[in-house]
């Protein structure tokens, strides 16, 4: 190193505590599934230094089937995590001390998919048929059965898609951004399928949200708010620069040895935009509406998952929904 440069570096080190940023606040986050475009906003916040700009040093842990998020949060293995609203609220309703600090997904991406050859035309036609569902998500089809007063044979699976493709079940649950595209990418054409969006069935339960323990929020509200703000900014960046976002996703998928398909990830990013920034309806990005909170609470009570719904203000600590 040249002498002059050396002195400049030393000078910068010496002046940093005086003129530089305050030290970054450390926090860890666990996404609720393997790396994929479902978390593109969070990866963008990391890759574009958005977390740092908000004064955070975030450690993103590897999610997946081997690391269920709520137990990890409860055990204190991680500071922040993401789960579906019904899962977070169910845990809170059962007395777990967690709070929602942001509602990322504003609408339900959940859907029911069947082949047209089953003859299904409307929800009630599915009565008596086999329905595959992810283990742990059974409440959602139960709410559907209740609403349409039908009974179906529920088959829980780690992933019901192959069972569906091999016609072991007539109907499967699917996320529009993920499994539905997997079905299309397995050779079934969209016009060969009949689909029902939960959002169209009067069961529009918002999904992905950010959670932390109540203690965490109380002791470090500024960190939680900074994290939310950074994630939302990350999402906006992901929608603005999809190629950059998919690159962030791809890198993490390859590192995690998760099969990566650009067609699938671009599809997923576009569908995430549909539910994070819906074109229709009255939504505030990142905010949980009390009406959505109540409808999910009612669903949990009706399906017998919980008996009481905690107060909205106790459960939700994120930014206020702005009525348009």
């Amino acid at each position: 190193m040249k002498p002059l440069l050396k002195w400049i570096v030393i000078a910068l080190f010496l002046t940093a505590p005086v003129t530089g940023q305050p030290p970054l606040k450390k926090i860890s986050f666990l996404p609720h599934w393997l790396p994929q475009a479902q978390f593109a906003g969070i990866y963008m916040a990391e890759d574009l230094n958005i977390f740092r700009q908000h004064g955070l040093e975030v450690t993103i842990q590897r999610g997946g089937p081997n690391e269920p998020p709520l137990p990890a949060l409860m055990k204190g293995k991680v500071d922040l995590t993401s789960v579906f609203l019904f899962q977070g609220l169910e845990a809170a309703g059962r007395g777990k001390p967690l709070v929602n600090i942001a509602q990322i997904g504003q609408r339900a991406a959940l859907m029911l998919v069947a082949k047209k050859t089953t003859g299904i035309e409307e929800p009630r036609d599915m009565a008596g048929m086999y329905l595959g569902v992810w283990q742990g998500f059974e409440l959602l089809p139960l709410a559907f059965f209740k609403k349409y007063t039908i009974r179906m044979h529920l088959i829980s699976a780690a992933s019901p898609i192959n069972l569906f493709l091999r016609e072991g079940i007539a109907v499967t649950t699917a996320m529009r951004y993920n499994e539905y595209h997997t079905i299309l990418a397995s050779g079934l054409n969209a016009d060969e399928l009949v689909t029902f969006n939960f959002s169209d069935l009067g069961l529009d339960f918002p999904e992905d949200g950010l959670y932390c323990l109540a203690d965490t929020y109380e002791s470090r509200p500024d960190v939680c708010e900074a994290f939310t703000a950074a994630v939302l900014q990350g999402w906006r960046a992901a929608f603005a620069q999809p190629d950059r976002a998919i690159e962030s996703v791809r890198r993490r998928m390859l590192a995690a040895h998760v099969p990566y398909s650009p067609a699938h990830q671009y599809w997923m990013l576009k569908r995430m935009q549909d539910i994070i920034l819906p074109q229709e309806g009255n939504h505030t990005m990142g905010a949980l509406k009390e009406s959505d909170f109540l409808s999910v609470g009612n669903m949990l009570i009706e399906t017998g998952a919980i008996t009481t719904v905690p107060p909205f203000s106790a459960f939700y600590k994120g930014k206020k929904h702005a009525e348009k």
């Binding site: 089937p65 081997n66 269920p68 086999y130 283990q135 088959i155 829980s156 699976a157 780690a158 992933s159 192959n162 069972l163 091999r166 072991g168 079940i169």
Partner: peptide, 16 residues
């Protein structure tokens, strides 16, 4: 963390 009866190799022959 590995409930094998939920996985394809077990579930699909069981159902089919």
């Amino acid at each position: 963390d590995y409930q094998y009866h939920l996985f394809d190799w077990y579930l699909i022959p069981r159902v089919l």
